[in-house]
């Protein structure tokens, strides 16, 4: 067992955890932040994407102890003052989801794309950078549209 101190969505958290506990289980079961999903559990689908020190990582492939001392942001932490984050709003406006299971990861990866490439994202970049996010409903078309629109909205 190890003690971890992780800032989650701006709030200091601390717990004594089994060393083998995955970050995604710490968030979902330890902090009740169930917006971060477990899809494939094999690092492929991206439903568990969270920001760790500003970078989108797969929380199913990171131990909670590895995240000790970091700042983690989950889907629950991106809205401000009751207003959806522009990337969330873009998914709502553009019908960027059907069942919604992959959506938290899609939104985090969209924000990460803006962090890496800026707010003017072309379709090719978005499709390439969706490599690590799987959606089994939409065929991706509206997800690509949503991320492009969300990125533009983040410029304002």
């Amino acid at each position: 067992m190890s003690k971890v101190n992780i800032t989650v969505n701006g709030k200091a958290t601390s717990a004594t955890v089994e060393d083998r506990l995955l970050l995604v289980d710490y968030l979902r079961e330890g902090r009740n932040l169930t917006g971060t999903h477990v899809g494939c559990d094999t690092s492929q689908c991206g439903a568990c994407l969270v920001m760790v020190d500003g970078k989108a990582v797969k929380a199913c492939t990171m131990l909670a102890v590895q995240a000790d001392g970091t700042e983690v942001q989950t889907i629950e932490g991106i809205a401000t003052d009751g207003n959806l984050h522009p990337m969330q709003e873009a998914f709502r406006e553009n019908h960027g989801l059907q069942c919604g299971f992959c959506t938290p990861g899609m939104i985090m990866t969209g924000i990460d794309m803006v962090n890496r490439h800026g707010t003017d994202l072309d379709e090719k970049t978005i499709r390439e950078d969706l490599e690590g996010n799987i959606c089994r409903c939409t065929g991706y078309h509206n997800i690509v549209k949503s991320i492009a629109a969300g990125a533009k909205a983040m410029a304002n």
Binding site: L49, A56, V57, T61, M62, T109, M113, R116, D129, G132
Partner: peptide
């Protein structure tokens, strides 16, 4: 290699 999230780690 992998995808953007994998490449960060």
């Amino acid at each position: 290699i992998g995808d953007p999230a994998v490449r960060y780690r």
